[in-house]
Design a binder for these strands. Structure first.
Lengths: 156, 156
DNA sequence: ACGATAGTCAAGCATGCTTGACTAAATAGT
DNA sequence: ACTATTTAGTCAAGCATGCTTGACTATCGT
């Protein structure tokens, strides 16, 4: 088999060019390690899908339907995640006083304190480790550029 | 329900702080869109797992066992992906002349040209679109910082 | 002859979803 | 006031993806 050097050059250039590859690999590794740490120190069986839920839940409580719409998922999918987080005592469902059909999903408390915070503390600690190794500058740049990338991707 | 303002502040700070969230969301979106584009224009049923394989295949051909070890997967998993890519005419298996048990996995050709390049061209084009919207500077910074992050994550 | 190695076949599993069918409550139309 | 439709949520089943483990065959190296 004769290998065309042009092929090699083209292949190599495009392998290096693949932003998506690096992105997905970094995301997977980071999340795996972070989740392992959280599982180790706090809750039972947290999975990445659970943590993606949190930003969509208001402190006062949110409806499953609303969360689902904002996340772009079916309400059944969100319902499942909520049920699981409920059994870990991270979330709770309370009836919506303004609508007999609806329920509000909100962060559960123990002694008046959000139980979620224990887990988030672990995550924050994990990230601090990364900052120490990479430097604040890089992490900040990364966060900012990722944010910009997300905006572009979401607006398509 | 009384909401402690301290809780709010802490929650908000930590929501913002979650690098992993942004990472995984960006990765998912980018890959979904890129794969959709490739499916649309070239091959049949390419999935993210397939493209993660490419960097581990040498132009001269590589053994499944070697690929699997470098990727950190079982050889069966790699075998499945290779089989699928073979049926899309992207890869081919040829006997290893130096070892009767082994086979070499390599990029298939049509008229002497790597078929893979058609697909990669689509990916490259997709990324060019991103560069146009975000600017070369940002993409380069992103790539570099992600690389650094990957190094740290992989060395743990 | 014999144990290790390359690859395959088959089955199964965790994750993160989806769709369909249903109940109960709210709301709009007449 | 009273159906009729819409809406919130749940239950159940199923599916695509990306793996894993176990069992097996063929070949290699000693």
């Amino acid at each position: 088999m004769v290998v065309d050097p042009k092929d090699i050059a083209e292949l190599e250039a495009r392998k290096r060019a693949s932003l998506g590859q690096v992105l997905i690999k970094a995301a997977r590794l980071l999340n795996e390690q972070a989740m392992a740490r959280v599982r180790e120190l706090t809750w039972q069986d947290v999975r990445p899908a659970h943590t993606t839920l949190f930003p969509y839940i208001d402190l006062e409580g949110s409806r499953i339907t609303d969360i689902a719409e904002r996340m772009g998922l079916s309400k059944q999918a969100v319902g499942q995640l909520v049920t699981e987080l409920e059994s870990m005592d991270v979330l709770e469902r309370v009836p919506d006083p303004t609508d007999g059909r609806a329920k509000l999903v909100r962060f559960a408390r123990r002694d008046g304190r959000l139980i979620l915070l224990d887990g988030l503390a672990v995550l924050a600690e994990f990230e601090e480790g990364l900052v120490k190794e990479l430097g604040t500058k890089r992490i900040e740049a990364l966060r900012e550029n990722l944010g910009a990338l997300l905006d572009v991707l979401e607006s398509r």
